[in-house]
Design a protein around this nucleic acid. Structure first.
Lengths: 336, 336
DNA sequence: CTGAAAGCGCTAACAA
DNA sequence: TTGTTAGCGCTTTCAG
């Protein structure tokens, strides 16, 4: 592997000059530049990135930290992220963290400057300490799908999202409305909790009373959702509509309905959340959240932060919108 | 930011000793180790990765190079990759390359040692020159979904895959079988071409003659596939079955059938390829390829290569299998 | 415009 | 067991 020194020797110049040529400094005479270029060519030289990083204190890499890469919603956000970085000089390094333990390890590791030039953290709320550490180290950071007082973030309003979905069902004439989500209390994100809040609020302002037995939480995933839905649908007075907190779970509810011989949307209305590809295939009514944009704008913001174009904590809130497809309709039987 | 020097000073030892402590060298007395640990603690010190990288000539990073991150099949492979690296000390850096131009740039850039410790290249066949460069630089490399004489790779047998799908249709009694894929000739991968070859072979050994008008290629994506399918289904003597080279395209064919009021599978049988999540939702018959495993095993192999556990070019071929769901059946009308 | 030299922070060989 | 020192390959003053 040729080094800058070899080039200097071959071109009969100092290493400083070679460096200047590499970095397009104008302070080199055309003549010597030519010589150096020649030598670089012949030696097939490429600068060693690590040396350059050490010297410059920059890495040209961004750490993207996210929970499992396994959910479609993360993939979609990642596409947005990729869309921005693909055009930039920065490269994303993926840190997909399964356990809360590893998550904390990474976070603390990466909060050091010199590891990466910036942090993009998806769906992971930060503790006070973690926030402090990042701030102390002055490492540019953007959170996606999580709020933070002192750090920039891009979010959707999950509370209003929950309300929108519920209101849609209410408008259709439902009053017995079930709510299904993954665990409401988790170290990762609290979108479920927020949507639940919105659900409650919509119910309340419509004068519908909240029933504990209509709210069910559990492990994420299609199959689990199906199980949970079956429970709720076996109630003496089952809901006529179910709001599932993700499209994947809504699909599970769809499974359950089929199994129980309930027609959708005649016997049961179902609405999901996210607007992933699959929802389109299945004609699922859903609350669309701009996952791609969320990633895209988060990444763009981070780039601005790194380049000092933008300062301080910024908040971007992206709009949600309802997509009325074929799994929601007026109830055939009036509710209570 | 504290450096190793600060720590040494504070602990009243030499930098070498600090380095030893950091690197768990046994050659440090418990006493001094304690002192050093103390100082590290107090100074909140973390070693600078870049310095370490420069010194050691290792990066602990793997470059994962792939075409657009936008297709479900890449995501699935990526999950497999992540599954392996998540447990290792290595981190994947994603290089998602849209244009052939950038692809070549990256490849040449990354083939330098010192950039990363290894290359995982997905769905990109390498030229002779590119292969040479990698070999010269002795950088551990594994290709996924692409063959190479001199580099390790993990693949599925697309020729046999094409044959399997076609044979399935033939077994069902079809003889007018359409073939739909994205462009057969592309710089990226040639799986389409191989599957087409398998299609031809199966036809031939069944004594069915090959018809040009039944083979159609075009831009990838669901919508385009729908268009293409409509063309082929409007032929004077349309096929009774269509083999689409990806599930996404098969879904497009499904759209076309619906639009043309053709019942599936009664009027038209459809089989896809890949076995992505969506295929399950839609009860699509398909040729399942182990995308996740492909990523997983490729990553594992690369790790072995890096750690010198395994040598030289290895080939791993993963099996394909047919999944007969509800979009394929015997034709209602006997073909020609 | 150019060369020499001093770092960047760490590792490892060499003495002690 | 430990401290000292010479790199790793590049950038960037500082003179000239």
């Amino acid at each position: 592997m040729a080094t800058i020194k070899d080039v200097a020797q071959k071109a009969q110049v100092g290493v400083g000059t070679v460096s200047r040529v590499i970095n397009q400094s104008p302070a080199v005479s055309p003549n010597t530049r030519e010589k150096v270029l020649q030598a670089i060519q012949e030696l097939n030289f490429t600068p060693n990135l690590n040396a350059r990083r050490l010297s410059l204190g920059k890495t040209w890499h961004i750490a993207v930290i996210l929970p499992y890469l396994t959910l479609p919603s993360y993939v979609e956000r990642l596409r947005g992220v990729q869309h921005v970085f693909g055009e930039s000089d920065y490269y994303p390094i993926l840190y997909s963290v399964g356990s809360p333990q590893r998550r904390d390890d990474y976070l603390s590791l990466l909060s050091e400057k010199s590891q990466v030039d910036g942090l993009l953290i998806i769906s992971i709320p930060l503790s006070e300490d973690q926030t402090n550490k990042i701030l102390e180290n002055e490492i540019p950071t953007v959170l996606i799908d999580a709020s933070n007082d002192r750090l920039s973030h891009v979010v959707v309003n999950d509370i209003s999202g929950g309300a929108i979905a519920t209101q849609h069902l209410i408008d259709l004439g439902h009053s017995r409305i079930g709510f299904l989500s993954d665990y409401l209390e988790t170290p990762f994100q609290h979108s479920g909790k927020d949507r639940h809040l919105g659900y409650k609020q919509a119910l309340q302002s419509a004068g519908i009373n909240y029933r504990d037995e209509y709210v069910i939480e559990g492990e994420r995933g299609r199959q689990n959702a199906a199980c949970m839905a079956k429970d709720i649908l076996s109630l003496p007075e089952p809901p006529t509509a179910i709001f599932a907190c993700s499209d994947t779970q809504a699909i599970g509810v769809l499974d359950a309905a089929r199994e129980l011989n309930q027609a959708v949307p005649d016997d049961l209305s179902i609405i999901g959340f996210d607007g992933i590809r699959d929802s389109e295939f299945l004609n699922l009514s859903t609350v669309f959240q701009p996952l791609f944009d969320t990633g895209d704008q988060g990444a763009a913001l981070l780039l601005d932060l790194i380049q000092n174009i933008t300062q301080g904590p910024q908040e971007i809130e992206l709009p949600l919108k309802i997509i009325h497809r074929k799994t929601t309709a007026a109830p055939s039987i009036q509710g209570t």
